[in-house]
Design a protein around this nucleic acid. Sequence first.
RNA 1: GGGAGCAUAGCUCAGUUGGUUAGAGCGCUUGCUUUACACGCAAGAGGUCACAGGUUCGAGUCCUGUUGUUCCCACCA
Length: 863
Amino acid sequence: MKNIIEKVYKASVIEENIYKFWEDNNFFKFNENSKKKVYTIVLPPPNITGALHMGHALNFTLQDIVARYKRMTGYEILWIPGTDHAALSTEAKVVEMLRKKGTSKTEIGYEKFMQECLAWKNKYGNKITEQIRKLGASCDWSLERFTLDEGCSKAVNEFFVRLYNKKLIYRGKRIVNWCPNCNTSISDIEVDFKESESELVYLKYFFSDNNNFLTVATTRPETIFGDVAIAVNPEDERYKNFIGQEVTVPISNHKIKVIADNYVDKSFGTGVLKVTPAHDFADFEIGQRHNLENINIINKDGTLNKKCGNYSRLKTFEARKIIINELESKNLLVKREKIKNNVGKCSRCDCIIESLISTQWFLKMQSLAKPAIKVVENKNISFVPERFSKIYMHWMNNIKDWCISRQIWWGHRIPAYYCKDCNHITVSPNKINFCEKCKSKNISQDGDSLDTWFSSALWPFSVLGWPEIQEKFLRCYPTDLVITGYDIIFFWIARMIFSSIELTGEIPFKNVVIHGLVRDAQGRKMSKSLGNGIDPIEIISKYGVDALRLTLVMGLTLGNDTRFSEKKIEGSRNFINKIWNAARFLKITNENILPKIEFNNLSIYDKWMLNKLNNTIQEVQKNMEKFEFGMAIQKIYSLFWDDFCDWYIEFSKIDFKNNLSNLNTCCYILCEILKILHSFIPVVTEKIWNFFNNNALTVSNYPEFNNKFNYAQDSKNVENIIEIIHAIRTKRNEMNTPHNKKINIFIATKSEDLIIKNSDKIKKLANIENIYINKKSSSDNVLTCALEFASINIPVGDLINQDELNLKLKKELEELKARISKNENLLQNKEFIEKAPSSIIKNIKNNLDSDKKRYFILNKKIN
RNA sequence: GGGAGCAUAGCUCAGUUGGUUAGAGCGCUUGCUUUACACGCAAGAGGUCACAGGUUCGAGUCCUGUUGUUCCCACCA
């Protein structure tokens, strides 16, 4: 064995086998017959486009930490993996691929195109599921799903039909966001408003019956062809008299009326607004209010249409420049000025969004939002951190109808059929071949597909077999947890909530845990355009998945962004190597070592360590229940490194020699720490566990807090020994005496017994030749260290600069003095004594006593 | 325009319901091949907790305001 365990932990070699070991043994498989309580986690299915990024790594790490923790604390875990068909993104990728091959989607046709997309899914979807495994995610692969598989499609159709029948889904000709590049409508939340430099141009609209004109300011002069009115605020004294009069649109020369509408801001521009209902959401509403015509002047490819005369076929932004020139040359321009305004861009391709009128399917939101607000208000669903519920609430309270149809092929085809004979629309979950009204066979299915989030919204229950109500659904729904980034609260979380309430009558999950973004070392968002993305899979092959997971979760605060850097991951790797070596040390010390507490043979050091472990288990468990992962791992880290390695193993080494009983206890403690570490760093812990156990760590039981490990007095004694050793080491350093040089010390103490009994430890860890207890040092030239229960004197030769030392002592004395008087004042303060809890008062009294003792000794020494 | 987050050591960040002398990792200084680990060990330096008020016996933590910064939402053409 000695030769087998490498001195440095080699992650890549070991990781390959461990996940396979878990999977082959079905450890992550949901057991329907289990009597355990079920804990269900909703896994956010990654897109099948591209590879997993750092955000996924964080997301899966957090989910897996919970899954493994819950599994070890006795739950039956249901965690169903899957992928999302990512309608628009995938279609764009496949279209691009076809373009490179010299063909196109229209050329190959619908069926063939869908096959191409499916081929893409099979290729890249599998790559992604492999990567999820690499991240160590302990999900049940036998239940893997895809948002476009048969079951999900069935759920989607059912959803559509039910809501259509309730008149919550409707088809209408309305203004929508149109991406000329993706060539489809998109929903409001897929538009990002970005500040950009624009030009505000002031145009003259002449009155029909005189030579006066009104000046209108606009950033989009090319849309004048679609003007149907100009609007002023009814309260605006400047323009009151013009309301109802007729003006001529410049260049276009069609006549429109001046109308009054409260929407118009008197202070912006000239206070006169041109109304173009077909190409502006606000104008659309004005148009509705005043019963105005919608003149669509923009084609779906972002060019002006034939209503624009000479300007037709030009891109809107090209036409704009030329129109401004023409206006200028015809003296129809008053002025131009640079302004900053928000321009809507497509969140997927960053192309400028056109607003235009189009026939689309919409989901009516008002009535769906109400119960979705209530369940969060009532805390049936809790957001962690809490503040995200406010963001959710605000959005839900101001929600608008959701445009759910997309002019693309890859996705769930809209289950609506149009009758060419009677114009009736039949909406059906199954394919039909005749009109439900006139029975004509002359029907065709809607060519559009549904927004990808329409199917994601059903994910928590569609993966449980809904619309059929199966045993699994009854047992596992509502689910317990979903973890996701704050960037998809609206896209996904909100939509799952209202869909679930509407369709199942239940909330989809009880807890929504929100994490932030993973940024680069400089705090920048990782992005393709910046080229600063770090591939988690590359990091895994270099440092191992445990190191990656540890880095992502160390110091993490939920909801806040976190930075990832090479430096950080080195630290994590070092920690993992430390665990590896501690285990290696125990194993090579005695091959027959077993994780077993030898209660008859416990030293005070064992008891001290068990006591610490026990307390940490309790604290960590509290943190885990509250999803405080960063805090939990911090405590385990410190327990392992600072307490277990730096003190406990070092103490134990002295007793080890051939004492297997002592080693076994040490091994037991290590294995308990492995258990609480396992959910964070599953691979290395499983591997090490394997040194000492025949079973699998991943299905072992999480340790529980136990009062029998409350060894208060022994622990206190060990703390005192540690304090002595630490004090000596510090003094040694002040004396410039290296650790490898033995020294003698004199200790004055009332705890003579304790020190005698543990002198071997003190001698070893502080490298002492002789300890003289309660004897006077022959030399007067000594360094003094005053502890609460002992005073240590170290004889020194002429090695030491006495002045420097006195300076230090004086500084310490000053500090002591200040603290003593502060605490004395505090204890004399009546209000403090009355109001402060007794434990605080007691602590202050204790501190005061020990400070006074130290002060006394040091003061004596210095004078 | 509305809302939210952040501001703590040189850097990156923790800090749970207010409670002794505010923590970690990295970096830095000094020393060390001490029977696992130099991806290590030991010791150390380094902080008016952004600023100004307030509540309280007691404030990094609660309240009000200010400044800086990041983000989200919103139809200023």
